[in-house]
Structure formats: C-alpha cells, structure tokens
Design a binder for these strands. Sequence first.
DNA 1: ACTCGTTTATGAGATGGAGT
DNA 2: ACTCCATCTCATAAACGAGT
Length: 354
Amino acid sequence: MRQPKKCHHKASDRAYVKINGQRIYLGKWNSQEADDAYDRQILKWRKAKDSSQELTTTVGELCLAFMEHAEEFYRDDAGNQTGEANNYRYALRPLIKLFRNVKCYQFGPSKLIEVRDELAAVHVRQQVNNNLARIKRVFKWGVSQELIPVSVFAALQTVEGLKRSRSKAKESQPVLPVPIDDFNKTLPYLTEPLSRMVQFQILTGARPSEARLLKVGDINTEGEVWLYKPNSHKNKWRGKARIICIGPKAQAVIMPFVEDAVSGAQYVFTPSDSSNQPYSLHGMISSISKACRKAKVESWSPGRLRHNAATSINQAFGDLDASRVVLGHAEKTTTEIYAERDIQKAIEIAKQIG
DNA sequence: ACTCGTTTATGAGATGGAGT
DNA sequence: ACTCCATCTCATAAACGAGT
C-alpha cells in the first residue's frame, strides 16, 4: 500500500492527509507545524499497517518468504548454493504440511511440539533437533523482517530439543572405518581413476570432495612431501586453512595421472568418459557401492576412509595429535570422534580372546 | 550440549557412449 | 538396434565440524 500523500486544501490554505478515507487537517500549508503533524500521522499509519501485517502473515507465507531469502543467502564465494537452502526446504516440509494456513501469531509452542513429534517419527534425534532449530530460525528471521511479532518467536524458543534416551526418536549409529579386507577386495572392481582416488584417500585422510576436486596445479611438488591446498573445503567459510600432505605412497598412487596431465587445470581423477570434469560426489559413491556388490562385500562409502586414516595414524604414532594434524581438525575433541573407534575395536577383540 | 553451518550417504532409476 | 556399463540425477537422510 502506498504511503498517503500530503495534500493542499486550497480553500483554507491548509495541509491535510487522507488516511482510511478520513481527512485529517494538519495546519497551515507549508508550515513547520503541518510538516511535523504529517510525519506523526504517517508514523501512526505505518505502525498500524505493520502490525496488521504482523498479524496476518501465515505460516505458509512466512516459509515462502524465508525460502526466497535462503536461496540467495546460502552461497559460497563462487556464488554457488551450498545446500543449506535445501536443508531448510526439507526441514520446513512438515511445518507447512501441518500448519500452512495458520496465522503465525497463533502458532505457539504446542504446535511446534506437534511438528517436532512429526520429525521424530522419521528422523534420527540429532536431525530432529537440527531441523527444529531451523524452524525456530525461520521465525526469528520473520521477526527481523517485521513479518511477525517477536512474542511468537520468544514463545517458540521455549521448546527444547529432544534429549538422549528420553525421546521416541532413534539414535544415530557411529561411523566406523572400512574393514581393510573389504577395501582391498573392492579395488579390482573399480575403474582405474576411482581405485586410485580411494587409495589416495585412505593414505592421506582427504575428504571425498578434497580428493575429487584435486587439480594437478594445486599440488606443490617441491618438497619430499607434496602439499595440496584445496581451494574449497568444508571450513573455508569460517576462514580456516586446509593443507593435505601427500607422502611417498600417496604420490605413487597419483603419479601416473600427474605425469600424464597436460595442464595444471586438469583434474587428477576424472571419469573415463569425460574430458576434464571431476567426478560428481554421488557418482563416485554409487560407483563404489556397485563395486562392493560385485566384490560381495558390505558396501562402504568414501567418507569412512577418513576414519581409516585417523585410526591407522593413531595406531602408528600412538598419538591423537598426529591424527588431528593430518585430518586438519582445529579441536582435539573432533578427532576423538574418530579415535573412539579404537575402543570399539578393543571391545571386539576382547570378546574373542576372552 | 547447543547453535549454525557444510558435507556426505543411500537407493532407485535415468542417461549416454562403447561394444556387439 | 540392442545391451552393457560407468556414472549421474533426484529426493532426502545423516554425519562432520567450529565455536561457545
């Protein structure tokens, strides 16, 4: 709605403004007094308008507005979407399904709990809590955009996440290293580039995407140990650096591809049919799991190779910090996620040797 | 343990080129 | 034209990670 204009009542040489069909006289035309009065009326008008918008916004409208914002907001510095917008889309789905047409000011904690229960029926507990937090954040954003009153958000804040072993939601299972036998049995069923890529990962502890996107020119081959500084990695947005050290074994694995490369812009690992495209994440994953099926071993995913690297470094050096440095973690507590698997292994062994 | 992110995992079906 | 095979796409679930 357009802002009402200040008008001139010529007959009496006064200023007036028409709000909701009503004329309000402001005083002598072109006087300070009239201008001030006009500003006051507009302020009042805007407030009334805003609060009426705050009261009419529905949950569906809020979600829609937020998603438009999210599509633009969650991007890396190359301008590509990071996937967070997608995460929101799925998080908001049950909310929209249940309460699309409810006015936001009528959406209180008990309704949010209903959504939480809906999430708990399908998701792992941690995921329930993550998505619950995302929903709350959408309402927070709504307040910041003056789409809804802050009281709505404040009330929703009182709904807590599900606590361990005190909810219906299932717990997630820990991720373990790939059994080395399975790994070795799978290798022959992979194409050459893929086989070398997974070997590269198990030796260096590189993340799947760090391996996929490795370009020949990214490698500093000056020293005895080569250095690879990925130009995109998980914590770049936080301003962290990441360097992957490529020792002699890993060098041998990628050597043929590095030698064959005609330019530094070439990816080290490329699918057989493409000129110079990296593997897609899903492509490499599904190829690996198909190879596992052929090799008749339980299917494993490339991310787990990072656990293999962590565990073997930990065993070789008996030092958690060694693993931490190689994996590039800032906090030791993060590395402990990986190292704990050793305890699991000890338990398995104890079971057998009594 | 929570917050706010980013990245990886899965499975079924689609696609596109090579070999027959 | 037909089939095989590696890889990709789609939809969505889950794990990883720094900071506090």
